[in-house]
Amino acid sequence: MDADSAPRVIAHRGFAGAAPENTVPAVEYACQHDETDMVEVDAVPTADGTVVCFHDPQLHETDDSRGITDADGTVWETATDTVLDARVLGTHATVPTLDAVLAAIPEGVGVNVELKHPGRAVAPFADALALADPTPARERWQPFVADVLALLDDFDRRVLLSSFYEGALAAVDAAGGYPVAVITGESITDGLTTAARYDAAAIHPHWHHVSGATERTVVETAHERGLAVNAWTVDTWHRAAALADAGVDGVIADYPELGAWRDRHPAADDGR
């Protein structure tokens, strides 16, 4: 595998395995690495609609949140000052606004914004992919998506908007002007169907859908439909190497330099 054929690297939450995820220091850390093509961050609103970068529903520990900050509250029901003061993973890094994250990304590096939750009462897991009627889901997402796009309008580098939820992708599509990627979850078929509806630029499957006996099927099918394939979440060099061999276009990685070991030791391929 040479540098020209290596998949592009998308720094997952700013290389979440090596830095406090979704924070400005993590983004700055990711952008120090020449291999970083894009930085991926999660976007949710606070109670007043400020767009912040955070993954879990709650700031504190619950059944569906890891409790990675020193604050309490459901993000979209919590005052902005409380969210922005929350320290992440015991560090001095705090939850940032999306605006602050975009300002930390230098020229030459793009951003992948994952749309996590619209800040409405209806849980987005009720809005999956390949919906029979995406209109209600799109309408739930539109106010939040409009706020995200208003920030991205001033960002003059490459942008990709991704989501597990068709409502989010439909809202981006309705606004026009930005490429989308479908995060496929457990159903590649639903992901491909949704990608076709919105002329998506890419699909983002979990790495296990792009490994094993069927690895070529997923990648080749996507490529035949004009879709890039960016696999998540990659945390070992040997998994990155296997995905590169499978022909993926990008790896959404928790650590930098996952492709470096095989690049530096090409003879290792002789034993594969």
Results as ranks from 00 to 15, higher is better:
P106F: 01
G110I: 02
A130Q: 04
A104Y: 09
P134C: 02
P134E: 10
P124T: 04
L102Q: 02
A130T: 04
H117Q: 05
A130H: 04
G119R: 06
N112V: 05
L98I: 15
D127Q: 13
G108A: 07
H117Y: 06
I105A: 01
L129C: 13
E114A: 09
A104F: 11
D99H: 14
V109C: 04
V101N: 03
T135M: 04
L115W: 11
A103I: 03
A123L: 09
P106N: 00
L115E: 13
P134T: 00
A104C: 07
A132S: 15
L115V: 13
L129H: 12
G119C: 08
V113H: 12
G110L: 01
A130E: 05
V109A: 02
N112F: 00
T135V: 07
A121K: 03
E107T: 08
A132E: 15
A132M: 12
E107V: 06
A121C: 00
I105L: 09
D133L: 14
D99I: 08
V101R: 02
H117N: 12
P134I: 01
K116H: 14
D133N: 15
V113E: 13
A103C: 03
A126T: 08
A132L: 15
F125G: 03
K116Y: 12
L115I: 15
V111K: 10
F125P: 02
E114Y: 08
V109E: 02
N112T: 05
A104K: 08
P106S: 01
A130I: 01
